[in-house]
Amino acid sequence: MSDTDRTEAHTSTGPEHEASRPDAPREKQRFELGTGPGRVLVWFYGVFTVAAASRSIVEMILDFGKAPLAYILSAVAAVVYGFITYSLVRGGETARRAALVCCAAELAGVLIVGTWARLEPSAFPDSTVWSGFGMGYLFIPVILPVTGMIWLRHARND
């Protein structure tokens, strides 16, 4: 492990690498993802976890048969939001990568479900969190993953 670190430090000339000592042991310390601008993201992802989870739970309890696909998708959205919130709070490179993948999945989900519901409205008798590209939620479901990915890419360089 330390060998790869050494070569990396020699080959790269980036300012962030010059600052760290080449022979220093691999950084075990987790960097923070949920502070600074990340704190605002923690808030929004937390809100959307609660919103999507409670929405899908209520809808599933009241009348699951009405639109099972829509309700399951809302539940999936809740799980994705929850995992991103957890990753932001946890911090570190592993969590950063996991959150990045989930943000991409979230964006894909919003775009696919939004388009799908538009092309084939009969598949969704009831709307989901991601229907109409998140229109019912002020388009935050589309804005949030993009902001999240920008922040997560930026956070590594700090």
Partner: peptide, 20 residues
């Protein structure tokens, strides 16, 4: 909940969180 988050974020971003 937002107030709680801003308690441990003593920067402008704590204010943004409460605002949001």
């Amino acid at each position: 909940a937002a107030a709680f988050l801003s308690l441990s974020e003593r920067t402008r971003w704590g204010s943004v969180t409460v605002s949001a």
